[in-house]
Structure formats: C-alpha cells, structure tokens
Simulated scan of single mutants.
Amino acid sequence: MALITISGFPSCGKSKRAEQIKSHLEARLNDASYTGPSLKVSILSDDILNIDRNAYNDSRSEKPARGALFTAMQRQMGQDTILIVDSLNYIKGFRYQMYCAAREQRLRVCTVFVVATPDLCKEWNSSRNDGRTYASETLDNLLMRYEEPSSMVRWDSPLFTITWADDDVPAEGIWQAVTAGNIKPPNVGTQAVPKAPTDTLRTLEHTTTSMVSAIMNEQAASQGLGGPITLTISAIKPRITLPPRNITLSELQRFKRQFVTVHKKAITLGTTEKGAVDWSEESIAGKFVTYLEENLRYS
C-alpha cells in the first residue's frame, strides 16, 4: 500500500515520530468513517532487527546492516501494509534504492525528515541509558556525512519536515500521501528482463530458412507473378504478399540475415517489450512476413 521513509540525524527523535505517525494512521484506519481497504501499519527499525549502534562505527559493518534493513523492508512491503522504515536512511542513494523497491511493488511513498540541531542530537545521545547510544566519534562522522532529503528529487517526494520544536507530525498530509498519492509505475531500468526459451535461436534460424525455401518454391510455381501466397512450414501456414517481380535467392537470404541478426540480440540479452513475448515458430514467422513485405516493397 505505502512506504514511509523516516530520515534524520542520529538521536534526533526519529523513533518518537514514527510512533506518532503509526498512532495517527491506525486511528484513521479504525475510524468508522473509513471505508477503504483493510490495512495494517508496521514499523521497521534497527532496534526491531537487533542492529547494534556499533554497526555504524565503520563501513565494513554498516553495509551488511543496511542490507539486512533493505531485505526486511522488501519482505514486509505489500498492498495490505503501510510500512514505516525508522532508521538513519542518511544516504540519498539508499533512499533511492528503497524508492525503486516500493515502485516495483506499486506502493505509494513519502519521506519524513526529522530535524534537530547537531548539539541537541549529541545531548540526547549522551543522555540515553538504554544501551543504544552512538560512540562519540561515530556520531560526529554520521552527522558530517548526512545527506539531507530534498523535495526536488522524486525519491524524497512528497517530503514532510518535522523539527524538534514540533509537538506532533503533519498527520493529515501523511495520510493523504499514503492513501491518495500517485502510484508511479515500476522503473524500466529495475524491471526483470524476460528471457527467451533456450531453443529460440534454433527456432529462429529454422523458421526463417524454411520460409525462404518455401517462397522460392512458390515463386517458381507462379512464375514470379507475385500477390498473396500461403507458405507451408511444418504445422503453420503463414501468408505473405509478394511484389509482381522475380525475387532472387540472394535477396531473400540478405533480408533473412538482417532479420536474424536483429532478433538474436533480443533473444540473448532479453527484451523490454511490454507484456509476454512470444518466440514460438508461428510468432517468428509472422514477424518475418511483416519484415519481408516492408523491405521487398521498397527494394
């Protein structure tokens, strides 16, 4: 249904805001006036995943921590869930990765930027007594490397900014974003590319070769009069309209080589065509007929 990304300095109050957002959303979902689909609101955080604050001490331990968060996020995203990801999310590239994953699931998205001054974050971090403090050096490093969200980029938009002085979150705006906001289609660059069956290259070569032979036989029988003819190739009978002239074997073989070369790339690398891609003998024959008719017309 939706992904809410929480971002902010370490120890700036992100978890408090995540709980406020969850409370507001659940209240709206349980209200008698709500008539939408049945939804649940979940929070995913470093604490829930038992990711220690020491994981952010160096890049070698931070990378698998982010990986664990991302994997858990992918598992919990769904059409029946509003998922709030309560973590630092301080790297814009990671927020973009989360955004793309949400688009793959066709979820609505929004970002909540929790703001507090560095001095306040250091004060709140040092005053914690729950064992979840950042080391002083780690905190300074994270503050320095923080990449602030921007409403000007699509993966941070819509963006809601909450300062340390705000008593509550902009509940109405967040509600509208996660229930009525735009659902963007999956990014083409992130979609899995459908691959052709393993015998498609053989089918492509066999079908086009058989069609060239059949065209030459039919042309010899009709003495080059042209017009629509039906070819018999194993179990299929494609129809092709030939021009009223004698077509040479070398001409057909040249068009066949061009056609095969173009389609080999799509077969070996995959195709970005929308919907199911048909590489059956009948489909290949139909494409080759269209290719020949267009090229023979102007040759």
Rank of each mutant, 00 (worst) to 15 (best):
F113Y: 15
L120Q: 01
W175H: 08
D80Y: 05
K14I: 03
E123K: 13
V212H: 04
P238N: 08
N187R: 15
I236Q: 05
T138F: 02
D166M: 05
P238L: 02
K22E: 11
R132S: 15
V153N: 01
Q191W: 11
T179C: 10
R257A: 14
A171Q: 11
Q258S: 11
E172R: 13
S7M: 03
N187F: 04
K274Y: 01
N54P: 00
D166N: 12
Q176V: 10
L39V: 10
W164P: 02
V289A: 06
D58P: 10
V153I: 14
A214D: 06
H263P: 05
A65F: 10
R60P: 01
D168C: 11
V114D: 03
N89M: 00
S213E: 09
S42A: 12
I162K: 00
S23F: 06
S11Q: 00
M216E: 12
V289P: 09
R53M: 05
R75F: 08
S87F: 01
R128K: 07
T35C: 09
A196V: 02
S45C: 04
M152T: 13
S15Q: 00
I51A: 04
D167Q: 15
Q176S: 14
R108C: 03
R66Y: 13
S15V: 09
K16V: 14
P194Q: 04
R28G: 00
F160K: 06
D58E: 10
E147M: 15
